[in-house]
Design a protein around this nucleic acid. Sequence first.
DNA 1: AGCGAACATGCAAACGATTGCGAAAATAAT
DNA 2: ATTATTTTCGCAATCGTTTGCATGTTCGCT
Lengths: 329, 329
Amino acid sequence: MANATLKKIAQVLDISISTVSRALKNHPDISQSTKQKVMELAETLEYEPNAVAVNLRSKNTKVFGIMIPSITNNFYDSFIAAVEEEVKHSGYSLMILQSADNPETETENLKIYRQNRVSGVFVCLSKETTNLDAFHKMKDAGIPVVFFDKVPDDDTYNRVCLADKDAAVMAAEALLKKNKKNILAIFGDTHMSITKRRLNAFQETLLINQEISLSIEYADTIEEAENIISSYFQLKNQPDAVFCMSDEILMGVMKSVQKLKIEVPQQTGIITLSDGFFPKLYYPEITYIETSGYRLGKLACERMMECVKGKEEAKEIYVNSRFVEGGSL
Amino acid sequence: MANATLKKIAQVLDISISTVSRALKNHPDISQSTKQKVMELAETLEYEPNAVAVNLRSKNTKVFGIMIPSITNNFYDSFIAAVEEEVKHSGYSLMILQSADNPETETENLKIYRQNRVSGVFVCLSKETTNLDAFHKMKDAGIPVVFFDKVPDDDTYNRVCLADKDAAVMAAEALLKKNKKNILAIFGDTHMSITKRRLNAFQETLLINQEISLSIEYADTIEEAENIISSYFQLKNQPDAVFCMSDEILMGVMKSVQKLKIEVPQQTGIITLSDGFFPKLYYPEITYIETSGYRLGKLACERMMECVKGKEEAKEIYVNSRFVEGGSL
DNA sequence: AGCGAACATGCAAACGATTGCGAAAATAAT
DNA sequence: ATTATTTTCGCAATCGTTTGCATGTTCGCT
């Protein structure tokens, strides 16, 4: 008999609902004999507490929201996987919503989160988001928000992000060490703050050396990155190294590399920022600075748990970068 | 003032909760004047209905569960994306849980779904699952289950799957048409029913032609696939075509292809079953039979919606395959 | 016998929203 | 003016669980 309730058990045993409730929780007020009867019946009736009712009573849903631009993205996947793993032991579940990089959808999703009274929300901002009003409402509703990856500039929020500067600096230093002189660097969407941070740090580090010629390009899609390589490698003055800001760009670059049969690392070196999955798809494996979604997820969870326990003051946390040697530089 | 309730509104306006409730739903019983007052106050108080309370009352949470072995898998991503898109207009949300290919976790997750009274669950079985008892409980609880991709043999369940046979046959036919004679076919985990189905259909189709030499290998990981290629292409009698059962295998194959500088399609042809993302990463783009997670998701949703509306009889549905020409064969 | 402590259980309110039914008020019909 | 009808609203139960407080019972002790 599924969907048993405390009421049913109480009726069968002819005792009160409260006694049943307490018996199941092993409350000291209840005698051993009743406890046993109750527990046995609950077992045979396959009683399972109605989480919805518990939530209503406790005002705590034990559900976290995660909002990302799109699920079909390896980086977010590992973030989600990390969060799921982490919050599970504490009895939390996840409610995942996609913003599709659309601020309106983003606002709607926040509304859904509010109406469902989630315990907290992890948010990776959409590319287009400029107005943060919708997020203020979350504060009013007492729902903690932890931003990750694409975070707002506003420092009154909790933000967990990759150490973009560090990573870009590490990549630049690796290029310097290899004595590369003619570098092509491809970055992503210029709107995004991570692009700016990465770009600035990268440029600054490289410009220490005056003899270096640095070309900066931007690509929003795999195809654009592909085309950039095609045009650059048709010139007489070919780059001796290519820097990719993200996996997406790396994919475009590598497609062109295969097409043009560019020899890596002999003809040109390649380095990228990446979560680590895609660089291992190629031969030679691509040298990269790890920007781990997984570790980001773990950190975001820690922060979220603090928020839930009341430590609401905004914090900015960085997950540090790691140089991973492939054979591409 | 966040977290307003019907009660608060009622108190401020000195009317009953039921009137407030009806006014907000534009119930004809309520006068225009009260409706206006209520709606205005609700607006300024930023009233938002408590979904938890509504769920408890209506016994309908408007949440679907999705259980998959691991989120970090492109195929499931597109499935999830499709489902999320699809169910959203109907007001449903998603609760995603990973089984990590562990039957125990699977059972625990089902329990979570039951306790949260989800409206239905989409399940992709773990590799190790043999016992379906845990899923019977869902039936008892009146929660519809729609299996997808890795489905049980038991035909009393709803199953939405890829047309594995068709896809394998299509791949085999493409190889025949290209007049390939020395074919290496790499399959995945032998436990999985999809492996068997794909393997049988593939073999049968090819064996029509007696002159064809077919080598069958199995790989559970990217590395294993990589090694298989390495060993086969060190022989004098190299395959003139490679068939990959999945993206995972394709990735391993392509890594070796790059390493050994095998010319595709001149030296050897390649064809794979795939969702479509990874084949486009290479040059030439890999020819594949599309097994679309996205379309699978859409279909699974349709079936689920029918279940929710009461049409519970078990059904098996296939999403048909599509040949996508790349340049690799 | 009488009184307090310890134990076991039940009552009822609460969480927030929905809804059938009844009742008061306002309007219409006779 | 009285009855009939409509409009407008509130009462109270319900969903399933939790919990403070009160009640009742059984001992033990003097």
